[in-house]
């Protein structure tokens, strides 16, 4: 671990510990259903993490997030390629995507509940429709950031379409795609909870609804932390892939 990473890890620990101390302090003065003590939250967290039945809920939510993101990513790639290729497609589809971006996730939940019967398809639809515009625009930007100079240089060697994609297009768009995944992962984890809260019979969102009905704040926090851990682990995986894929980037000794 280099000094910058060490410093960041330390800052994260200090910041989180500060919030934990404040929470524990508040728990001394408020009832459990408002501010449960840290040991109570930790116990609930460990219970959920060590119980196979509850872990299925966490894994269900994780699978829904990943399925939604993969679906949105595939649709986003196809749409971005169409927009990049056709000026008229861009003229017609960009306003539609912009409009979709403005629709709140909760509205999509209501629409999906009315439109579809199957819970899984409902959630998949909500995940795709809420993350699709961002994926499309980010992938389109990544494709368009391709250097004209490098494009002409590569074309001059007369590559096949596949070789062109492999040697130039893919390395050019990878940074943008990884950024899109990181941004959309955060969005998707928020949307999936809303979708499960309203229309599901399992998953973290459903469990959060149960905790709310029971006025169990320790349970609500513990379930939320399960999702946060998943997001952090997945963010870490993307960051590791990013660090490997972009290892060629020069590092400045000074930060901005």
């Amino acid at each position: 671990m280099d000094s910058v990473s060490r410093k960041r890890a330390l800052q994260f620990i200090v910041g989180t510990a500060g919030v934990a101390v404040l929470w524990q302090f508040a728990s001394l003065f408020f009832p459990d259903y408002l501010f449960p003590s840290l040991p109570q939250i930790v116990r609930r967290f460990v219970d959920i993490a060590s119980n196979g039945a509850t872990q299925i809920d966490v894994l269900t939510t994780a699978a829904r997030i990943l399925a939604g993101l993969v679906g949105a990513f595939i649709c986003g790639v196809i749409l971005a390629l169409i927009l990049n290729k056709s000026g008229s497609a861009e003229a017609y589809l960009t306003p539609v995507l912009t409009l979709l971006q403005g629709i709140p996730a909760l509205s999509w939940v209501v629409i999906a509940v009315i439109w579809f019967h199957g819970t899984e398809f409902r959630i998949f639809f909500i995940m795709v429709v809420t993350t699709l515009p961002a994926f499309t625009f980010q992938i389109l930007d990544a494709v368009r950031s391709m250097s004209k100079d490098l494009f002409e240089m590569t074309v001059a060697f007369r590559p096949t379409r596949w070789t062109m994609f492999r040697v130039l297009v893919l390395p050019t768009v990878v940074p943008g795609i990884l950024t899109a995944w990181k941004v959309n992962l955060g969005n998707a984890s928020r949307v999936v909870v809303v979708a499960e809260l309203v229309g599901a019979t399992g998953g973290v969102g459903y469990e959060l609804l149960r905790q709310q009905q029971l006025f169990d704040m320790a349970g609500a926090i513990a379930w939320t932390l399960q999702l946060v851990v998943f997001v952090l682990v997945f963010q870490g995986v993307i960051t590791a892939i990013e660090a490997w894929a972009l290892r060629w980037r020069p590092k400045s000794e000074r930060a901005i």
């Binding site: 100079d149 240089m153 390395p171 972009l246």
Partner: peptide, 11 residues
Amino acid sequence: IVFQGDRLMPW
């Protein structure tokens, strides 16, 4: 082809 700039792929 040798271009005006080096046009090397940075990656």
